[in-house]
Simulated assay, not measured.
Amino acid sequence: MFDSPLSASAYEVLGVAPDAADDDLRKAYRLRLRQTHPDTGGDAAAFVQVQRAWELVATPEARAAYDRGHGFGGTGYAPAGAAGGAEGAGGGGADGGWRPRTRSADTRPRARSFGQPGGWRRERYLTLMREWAGRGTELADPYDPALVRTAPRELRRLLADALAEETTARIVGDLGMGYTVWHDVAADPRDADLKLDHIVLGPSGLYALRSEDFGGPVRVRRGDLIGDGVTGAPVAEVVAAARAVARAARVKFSGAIVVLPDDDVVTAIDEIGRVRGLAVAIVARSALSTVLRRGLTGARDIGGNELFDIRTRLQQVVRFV
């Protein structure tokens, strides 16, 4: 993935300097292909990253375009305005930039939505960004890519997570009026760090979602995610948060889903089994709508009065971070 505040540039993925000669660039690409190829013991997700990086700089024309728009290793980012976020807005977001997006003029029926996706992390990012820049320093644009790239990883991670949540919010908002969504839900008032990024209720079930962007390829091992950028135990944490909300609302979740950028996973839908009794799947963003419409394996459909009852129970206990 090359449009993340955490991602490496195409040159970094290929292991060369930005001013490397074309022949050296091509040699580096072939070397990285051999190093990451799954048939020779490499990582499949990293192999995909290498191919994607090469696509961006393979020809003089492509490389020139990449260098013009991505001189510091990211993609180009256009201003996008202020965020929406009230009920029915379907969430804010950023289409490829790092700024919250204005509310869409799309008039199609959307999921009923509550909360501000990514809002807590954006506020935290802006506060810490100003502290990092130093007292008295005016930040004309705290989302300027050149500035963001120089910030500590902890700050870039906050922004990446906010973007991930906003992207998921747009996807689930498009599911339609048969779905209800809660964003940035506090799972346990005694633990400020335990939250659910999204709760999605629809005919296919009740799902706890965690939106992540680790800035690079990830894979599953022993029931959780591992990778260079992975911190903590994302699967265990979303399951713990889901169980806390389930106890408070007296509801039963159908499953937990960790949503990741398409480029960072090998399999679009990976149902990894049950964790503490809850079905769990690792899902690429592009496949999320499919999963939420059909449900996870073994999840039963919800309809009629039961759907209304679950929504009412959640509305009574949901608190936002």
Rank of each mutant, 00 (worst) to 15 (best):
T127Y: 12
I171L: 13
G93C: 07
D144A: 15
R170Q: 14
Y125K: 02
D161T: 10
D144T: 08
L175K: 12
W132T: 11
R99F: 04
R153I: 10
L175G: 07
A192L: 09
I171W: 00
V172T: 15
A162S: 14
P117C: 09
V172L: 06
D141E: 12
Y179Q: 02
R108S: 12
D95K: 09
A187I: 07
T150P: 02
T127H: 13
D174N: 13
R153P: 03
A160D: 00
A151G: 07
L126E: 15
G97A: 13
Y143V: 06
A94E: 08
A133H: 07
R124I: 05
G134K: 06
A111R: 04
A160P: 00
R130T: 11
R124Y: 02
T137V: 15
R149Q: 11
A186F: 00
A162N: 01
T167F: 03
A151T: 13
T127F: 11
P109M: 11
W182Q: 05
R190M: 06
G136K: 06
T137I: 15
P189A: 13
R121P: 00
R112M: 01
H183S: 14
P100T: 13
Y125T: 02
G173E: 01
A186V: 07
A133N: 09
P152W: 11
G119K: 11
M129R: 13
W98R: 13
Q116V: 14
A105R: 15
W182P: 00
G176H: 02
F114S: 00
P152Q: 12
L158F: 03
T107G: 04
A111P: 03
E131I: 14
P100D: 09
R130Y: 04
R101V: 06
R170V: 01
T137M: 08
G173Y: 00
L159A: 07
D144G: 04
M129T: 12
R135F: 05
G178S: 15
R153W: 07
V148K: 07
R170A: 07
R153Y: 05
D174W: 01
W182E: 05
H183P: 01
R124S: 11
M177V: 11
F114K: 00
S113H: 05
R149L: 08
S104I: 05
D184E: 15
R108C: 02
A186Y: 01
A187H: 05
V148T: 11
A94G: 15
L128E: 15
L158H: 07
D95T: 12
Y179F: 15
G96I: 14
A133G: 06
E154C: 05
T167N: 11
V148M: 09
E154K: 10
